[in-house]
């Protein structure tokens, strides 16, 4: 007779590390959006973000977002490691940041800030 087993040895892992990853992901995405808007608004920032002439300002915009994502992740991970946090609040913050990233990378939005 087939039996259904339950995983009785399961450990209830703290949600801190996952909340940290979600918020860090939101920060990375929002940062890409923010640098996209800033590069559009200021020629000086655009030049500062041009880390590679062939690629243009996309180098700085994308890599700043990626760097901030990993830095935030490491920082938040160590802050919330082994802890339980208010997951609803953390995920809501992550969604807002993710949404900001989507909006700020949408051309009709960042074109509103175009210099000149």
């Amino acid at each position: 007779m087939a039996t259904m087993t339950t995983a009785s040895t399961e450990v209830d892992l703290p949600n801190g590390p996952v909340a940290a990853a979600l918020v860090a992901g939101g920060i990375g995405c929002a940062a890409i959006g923010l640098f996209t808007v800033l590069a559009e608004a200021s020629a000086g920032i655009k030049t500062a973000l041009t880390w590679n002439a062939a690629v243009g300002a996309l180098t700085g915009k994308s890599l700043m977002g990626v760097i901030l994502f990993f830095v935030a992740w490491i920082g938040l991970h160590f802050m919330y490691r082994g802890k339980n946090v208010n997951f609803t609040r953390a995920s809501t913050l992550a969604f807002v940041l993710l949404g900001l990233g989507l909006v700020m990378t949408f051309p009709p939005f960042f074109d509103l800030f175009a210099a000149g």
């Binding site: 995405c29 890409i32 994308s62 977002g65 990233g101 989507l102 990378t105």
Partner: peptide, 13 residues
Amino acid sequence: EHVGWLAPIAATV
């Protein structure tokens, strides 16, 4: 070129 960078970050999370 901009929104594409959101994909690997979200997928990694």
